[in-house]
Computed example of a mutant assay.
Amino acid sequence: MPTGIVKLIDFGCARRLSYLNHTASNSGDLLKSVHGTPYWMAPEVINESGYGRKSDIWSVGCTVFEMATGKPPLAHMDKMAALFYIGAQRGLMPSLPDEFSYNAKDFVDFCLTR
């Protein structure tokens, strides 16, 4: 913004907020539905068990990973494969490469913890 304040929102969240402003009914169902880009989606969003602060923390970890490496986590996978991988809750998410500081790697690892 011209005042120097940064506002950040993902497209899925913006869509939900737009919907909530127009309709008060069924808002709970909308907040539990799957929206978003597979590479940044938290396991609970993929599994439709809800959306909340934990999902946002996961997305921040994915965003920091992409800012550091130029690609989102699991970018080597097809979008659907990444979706199933994250949703299965068995696979480990990638860490930042070794050239990054311990604190940066630790931050991303904590954000991408299930």
Rank of each mutant, 00 (worst) to 15 (best):
P2R: 13
P2A: 14
T3Q: 10
G4S: 10
G4Y: 12
K7M: 14
L8V: 15
I9H: 05
D10K: 06
G12Y: 04
C13N: 10
A14F: 13
A14Y: 11
R15T: 11
H22Y: 03
A24H: 11
S27G: 11
G28N: 12
L31A: 05
K32C: 12
S33W: 07
S33P: 04
S33Q: 11
V34H: 03
H35R: 13
G36N: 08
T37C: 06
T37P: 03
Y39T: 00
Y39A: 02
A42N: 01
P43V: 02
V45P: 01
N47L: 07
N47E: 04
E48S: 08
E48Q: 11
E48G: 03
Y51I: 04
Y51K: 04
G52V: 07
R53P: 01
K54H: 11
D56E: 08
I57A: 11
W58T: 03
W58M: 01
V60E: 01
C62Y: 00
C62F: 01
C62V: 01
E66R: 06
T69M: 10
G70L: 10
G70I: 09
L74E: 00
A75E: 09
A75W: 11
H76Y: 14
K79S: 07
M80I: 12
M80Q: 11
A82P: 00
L83P: 00
Y85C: 05
I86W: 03
I86A: 02
G87M: 02
A88V: 04
Q89H: 04
G91P: 00
L92G: 05
L92Y: 04
L96M: 10
D98Q: 15
F100N: 10
F100M: 13
S101V: 10
S101E: 14
S101Q: 12
Y102H: 15
A104G: 10
K105Q: 15
D106L: 15
F107M: 15
F107H: 13
V108K: 08
V108Q: 08
L112P: 04
L112W: 07
L112S: 07
T113H: 14
R114V: 08
